[in-house]
């Protein structure tokens, strides 16, 4: 379905926090490769650094040392502006609490990433419709987040994440706030995006059922990965 070329390469990655006088290492000397078209679930106990890793992959946090390469280019040392441009072009984010703008309609929320492109108004509208169509939310385009259920809001958030056609989707507990049935629907949608559209997806979850939708499961524990083979 995809070529096996490395999309991400993490080299000797470390992340440390200073708490008072104490320095806490989240992980130290982490190496990892993520291929184009992967669907990876990152699991692990609380505080193991799952979300921190996702932040580093998404360019919203920087490592204490080591390198994050995306398509062979380092992103960990880019300036604020360049990193913002990199995110706009390459990364789509899906959050546990959806992070939709409450005063905007579903369509306006989805349109946000396209405002950073040079697309015309009409082209933006077409792209928004396509994205909403993929997640099955076209008929709710005019609704505000408060008028939508949790699952519907997450679908809109997924549409927002894919509308600018980024290479990677980074999902942080995307079903953490949803009931089982709704969670399954969302995960099926992500699986579809991976299989049909070839999107690389990296998903942080603590839920084994959610992780089972991914092609690979990586368990982060004490700063190290343990890979579990898929059944």
């Amino acid at each position: 379905m995809t070529d096996a070329s490395g999309l991400y390469e993490l080299k000797n990655l470390s992340k440390r926090y200073t708490r008072g006088k104490e320095t806490v290492a989240i992980f130290d000397g982490l190496d990892m490769t993520i291929s184009q078209g992967d669907f990876i679930a990152i699991m692990g106990p609380s505080g193991s650094g799952k979300t921190t890793l996702l932040n580093l992959l998404g360019g919203i946090d920087r490592p204490s040392s080591g390198e994050v390469l995306f398509e062979g280019q380092r992103i960990d040392n880019l300036g604020q502006g360049k990193l913002a441009k990199w995110r706009a072009k390459n990364a789509g984010f899906i959050f546990q609490f959806y992070n939709l703008m409450p005063t905007l309609s579903a369509a306006q929320n989805v349109e946000l990433p396209l405002l950073l492109t040079n697309l015309s108004g009409k082209a933006r509208k077409d792209r928004v419709k396509t994205a909403l169509d993929i997640v099955g939310m076209v008929d709710r385009a005019g609704h505000r987040p408060a008028q939508l259920s949790g699952g519907q809001q997450q679908r809109v958030a997924i549409a927002r994440a894919i509308v600018a056609d980024p290479k990677v989707l980074l999902a942080d507990e995307p079903t953490g706030d949803l009931d089982r049935t709704t969670a399954d629907e969302i995960l099926q949608t992500l699986q579809l995006l991976n299989k049909e559209l070839g999107k690389t997806i990296i998903m942080v979850t603590h839920d084994p059922a959610a992780a089972s939708y991914a092609a690979r499961e990586l368990h982060l524990n004490k700063g190290r990965f343990e890979e579990k083979g898929k059944a």
Partner: peptide
């Protein structure tokens, strides 16, 4: 705060 941070994550500037 979260809205503004989300916009920044999407790629909006400060």
């Amino acid at each position: 705060t979260r809205e503004l941070a989300t916009l920044r994550a999407i790629g909006f500037g400060g």
